[in-house]
Design a binder for these strands. Sequence first.
DNA 1: TAACATTCCGCGC
DNA 2: GCGCGGAATGTTA
Length: 160
Amino acid sequence: MIPTTEGKFAAYYSERGLAQLDFPGDERKCDGKETNGGAPSSEVQRWHAMTAKALKAALAGRTPRELPPLDLSSGTEFQQRVWGVLRQIAAGRTKSYSEVAAEIKKPGAARAVGGACGANPIPVLVPCHRVLAAKSRLGGFSGGLDWKRKLLAREGIQLD
DNA sequence: TAACATTCCGCGC
DNA sequence: GCGCGGAATGTTA
């Protein structure tokens, strides 16, 4: 668990890196292989420290200096492609679903992009909240639109 | 096949 | 201009 000014975030790690990050209170189902019962390896502890630092920076509206390795192997190739685009969005900037779709050479797949964002296991660090619908409307958000609004506000993004 | 965190077009207000 | 209904669209479980 990572305590922040916004509450406690739950982090789950696989052998490759950070695999999932959950919003406070949002107890998602941890499919079987969560934390190993015994002592976490020193590697995981190091990742956890990085995650905590990066998360706090992101919540403060700053770009994290360094991120822990992310294990995105749970997603499909299409989703990983989308997440890759999301991570290219600079803090304070936004992209629309259709623009992201165009980025990955699949215009018209705006709706599919929305699906990929919703499947994103690592919110905040993979800035799924910087993706808006066309005409700078909010669109949706898995953890609740409150979070999306709050995160955008933290980065100084104002919607009309 | 059904279900979406979309988008676009056409109306009515 | 804004909101709503309906159709087209790509990906996923």
